[in-house]
Design a protein around this nucleic acid. Structure first.
Length: 427
DNA sequence: CTTCCACGGGAACACTGGGGTG
DNA sequence: CACCCCAGTGTTCCCGTGGAAG
């Protein structure tokens, strides 16, 4: 047998640090049997939903909290328990219990149509196509098929409002309105939001209808994260494979990232992977350190790769003048010049301001609003974020990784520009 | 108080890609 | 098959507005 590119990555099962299927335990969509430090929240949620088994429609629920604070985990945990209870009751009664809980992720179905169709297909799989119908038609179909009490978890519900506030309100209004329109089926919503401003820009008429319970999930601190990680480590790795200081390290970093348990778990998994690839017999703090820098770079590079061609050009302009602070007007000039040399159509300045805002939100650049007074007006001062390594940005721009946001000839030309300006030499 | 530049909301448009109809 | 309906996305166009130097 010759050498194969997979060889160094496939570890002999007998030498693996992970138990069978253990690596999955660390993945973000794994739902453990026990949720440390979230038992109370799960119990409260169960209490709110419990009346559904007696035939009354539960109150709506809004859950707020930053990423990785266990919102989704708690909701899905309760969903799973509810399904178990339903089954048990049905076994006992010998008849079906008309209670169901569905999960919709609004980031994946990221449009009013997508969410509406998602719910309709939960009620009756395949009843609605992914595209092509009017929303009203989807809604009609949904109303046709709805029966009993349906608890709908709308995860990342804030994404419905980030693009078009009016549409988001309209959708929630329609969904909550169903209960007064129809007798045979009811809906209650569990909205999960990463936006901690607690408002979601809900209009008054929608707010009045939602009228439910609100939960705020506080971020985990380092101690809590350590408890979470410790439990996962026990089911993911063989005994004594992960040193306690590695767990503490991951927990501490997770705490720094706004108490993000997901990040801490990713760190731990990466550390485990690195340890395996190095054929180590244990996961050491050195592996965790490597994992940390890997994730940092990976996030940036991946973020840049996903950008549109125009955003990459804006970044290019900033990289070429990495010590300069641009006003929007200046940056637009620079961008226009770049478009000329690359022979591409340029977008309007209005569009560019939006793209700059997106880059700012992504944390790749700093754009500070300043009023410079007479003759200068009100503008943003734009520069690369000093904390972002230049190398990752440049490789992110050039290395498309099959995403094809850059036309091939444009990519070549940008590379050429970088080389000409002696910025690309170290790659 | 004027003046300046760009911010950013909103309407309108083009285009894409799917379903439904005759 | 030709043709219309519909949602979504990315864009342009128009324009009222902010806020500090002069």
């Amino acid at each position: 047998m010759g050498k194969n590119i997979f060889d160094s990555y496939i570890v002999d099962k007998s030498k693996s640090l992970y138990k069978d299927n253990g690596r999955n335990v660390l993945s973000s969509d794994y739902l453990p049997d026990h949720l440390p430090h979230r038992g109370k929240q799960a119990a409260q949620l169960a209490q709110i939903l419990a009346p559904s088994f007696n035939g009354s429609t539960p109150l709506n629920v809004l859950i707020y909290g930053k990423t990785g604070t266990g919102k989704t985990a708690v909701a899905c945990y309760v969903q799973r328990e509810l399904a178990k209870k339903k089954k048990a009751l049905e076994m006992g009664l010998g008849e079906s219990v008309p209670v169901d809980c569905h999960y919709i992720n609004c980031l994946i179905n990221n449009s009013p149509y997508g969410v509406m169709a998602g719910i309709a297909n939960e009620l009756e799989p395949g009843s609605v196509p992914d595209t092509g119908w009017s929303i009203e038609k989807v809604f009609r179909k949904l109303k046709e098929n709805i029966e009993g009490i349906n608890i709908v978890i709308l995860d990342e519900i804030d994404k419905l409002f980030s693009k078009n506030i009016g549409q988001g309100n309209q959708l929630l209004y329609s969904l909550t309105n169903i209960n007064s329109e129809i007798e045979k089926g009811k809906i209650s919503l569990i909205g999960i939001s990463n936006d901690t401003t607690y408002t979601l820009n809900l209009e008054q008429k929608v707010l009045g209808r939602i009228r439910g319970e609100q939960f705020v999930f506080r971020s985990y601190d380092a101690t809590q994260l350590r408890d979470i990680l410790t439990e996962r480590v026990e089911s993911a790795f063989y005994p004594n494979v992960v040193k306690p200081d590695v767990v503490a390290f991951c927990a501490a970093l997770g705490a720094q990232q706004n108490g993000d348990a997901r990040y801490a778990l990713r760190l731990l998994m990466k550390a485990g992977d690195i340890a395996e690839q190095n054929k180590a017999v244990a996961v050491l703090s050195d592996h965790a350190n490597q994992a940390k820098s890997f994730l940092e770079k990976f996030v940036i590079k991946e973020g840049v790769q996903k950008l549109t061609q125009t955003q990459k050009l804006l970044l290019t302009a900033l990289v070429l003048n990495k010590n300069h602070q641009f006003t929007t007007g200046e940056l637009y000039e620079e961008y226009a010049i770049l478009c000329n040399t690359l022979r591409i159509e340029r977008l309007t300045q209005r569009r560019i301001t939006d793209l700059v805002s997106e880059l700012d939100e992504a944390g790749l650049i700093n754009a500070i609003m300043k009023s410079l007074g007479r003759g200068k007006g009100r503008t943003r001062l734009i520069s690369l974020d000093a904390n972002v390594p230049l190398e990752e940005i440049i490789t992110g721009i050039l290395d498309d990784d099959g995403r094809d946001s850059l036309e091939e000839n444009v990519r070549k030309k940008i590379e050429h520009v970088f080389i000409k300006n002696k910025i690309y030499s170290f790659v």
